[in-house]
Amino acid sequence: MARANPIVIQPRPKMRRMADIWGRLKKNKLAMVGLVIISVFIFAAIFADLIVDYHDMAITQSRNRLAPPSLKHIFGTDHLGRDVFARIVHGGRLSLSLGFVSTAIALVIGGIFGAMAGYFGGRLDSIIMRIMDLLLSLPAILLALAIIAALGTSITNLVIAIVVANIPGFARIVRASVLTVVGQEYIEASKAIGMGSTRIILTNVIPNALGPIIVQATMAVAGMIIAAASLSFLGMGIQPPTPEWGAMLADAEGYMRHYPYLVIFPGLAIVLSALSLNLVGDGLRDALDPKLKNVG
């Protein structure tokens, strides 16, 4: 839907705009629930050592195998006597940082390609976007599996595998955002006063295209958490005994008949973190573009 006046000609002060967005986001109950849940996860990951001592609960517990949830082990213990709660809290460090770090890398690489394609246009644009379309024509998990099959399993290779599949998405969204602002007068003005291309892109183009990028990034973190967990579940990502949610599920698969809690809690951690990020992303999209909300 074409907006009559896509760019506010006299931008309001930055603080004011941020406050507006936050005000609208606050009214969205689902987004706030999501924000609370993901904050709990992030805090738990940062302060994991204060919450539960990993060494105490998960390394020196080998006598207490497959104990059901109790006061001492609220999520029970696994086949090696490790406390499931401790492993989820500490595994969150890896699972969440994999999600955030991979997204950041994909955003920077995809962003550079997208900004170049959108800003310079012409031949460069069509070459870059052609390559991106080709990457998109491969299902993400196939691309990831091929990369891991070639490079082997390690954390670095896992990150490479899930980043590559997400570069085209960011390139597209950054390019589209750049295209909406690139013809504007203030860009012309920056060119006229002799600013270099890189500086114009960084100081004028990107900040004005930030909204959709943040929304896409929030959703991408959720996708990356699931992708990393899926690959680890297949044994193509994080290897045991390192605690990671997907790898925990792979460990638990053989014991699930009699100890279902072993697959329920790590899975819940994956779903809740991904779901809450998606809720925040949905909410942000509505808050950044209130006009869309009224129509839909």
Partner: peptide, 11 residues
Amino acid sequence: ATMPTFWFGLL
């Protein structure tokens, strides 16, 4: 829509 396929399958 956010359910990871493999976990949903396990459940």
